[in-house]
Design a protein around this nucleic acid. Structure first.
Lengths: 134, 134
DNA sequence: CTGTATCCTGAAAGATACTG
DNA sequence: CAGTATCTTTCAGGATACAG
């Protein structure tokens, strides 16, 4: 129910009109995976997040958190204190994403050696090709 | 074993010196998820891939395939024919990535309604805030 | 058919300075 | 503390033309 519009409700990634154009929450955002990981253990303050996220700027962190909030994966709670305190946490929805993420992360960890080897082999072949083409 | 260098061999995504800077194969590439899906059923020719990948240009497809090849997820096979024929296929390594991908895709599919709802709610609140701030 | 070679655009990210 | 405001950079992606 709640038929607001004729929303197709598809996740067919091959449909150019898919309402979720790329992978939700994680797609097209460099820091999203790491931010999810940082919130895994419980609510964190803005400045707490900046510590493990080495190199992120306040601007990018704020933008990322807002985007993830808009997708329902993160909730922002502002406390009326001085100095101000704001906490970010995973929503129940966001938390359900941790499992699928783990699958990909585990794969990366387990196959890192193979990935590095592939890269080396590829670069070796590239060099060989370049020499052969002389 | 095989101590080629002092390679840290870590997939700690919080390490800025991690040899695999973003999520391997899938990270930072708009079409990688879809390309993986297109190769799932077996080897495909370049022009075959362009059909389901609506909107991709030859340049971007070639770049993506080369990158995924360099990471060992895809193998390129060139047949010496006229007109030329080239086939792309998943490597055994690439194939092991399909499972983890499925987990994320299933999550997207199952939570699409919640994601759309969250987005609507977020935009409603934004509008409310804008009015309230008048 | 399977690309490459250019050139261009746009969106995300980064640097820096400043504010409630 | 928790951001916002600008400006600049970067680079994946796109358009078009051409080549083996």
């Amino acid at each position: 129910m709640t038929p607001t519009e004729s929303a197709p409700l598809t996740t067919d990634f091959f449909d150019p009109d898919c309402p979720v154009r790329t992978i939700p929450v994680l797609g097209g955002r460099k820091w999203a995976w790491k931010i999810m990981r940082c919130l895994e253990g419980g609510p964190r303050r803005f400045s707490e997040l900046r510590v493990p996220l080495v190199g992120i700027t306040a601007k990018v962190l704020a933008e990322s958190l807002r985007a993830m909030e808009s997708e329902g994966a993160v909730v922002r709670t502002e406390y009326d204190e001085h100095p101000p305190r704001v906490e970010y946490a995973l929503t129940p929805l966001g938390r359900t994403l941790l499992g699928p993420m783990d699958a990909v992360c585990a794969w990366s960890r387990q196959n890192l050696a193979g990935l590095l080897e592939a890269r080396e082999a590829y670069e070796r072949d590239e060099a060989g090709r370049a020499v052969g083409a002389r």
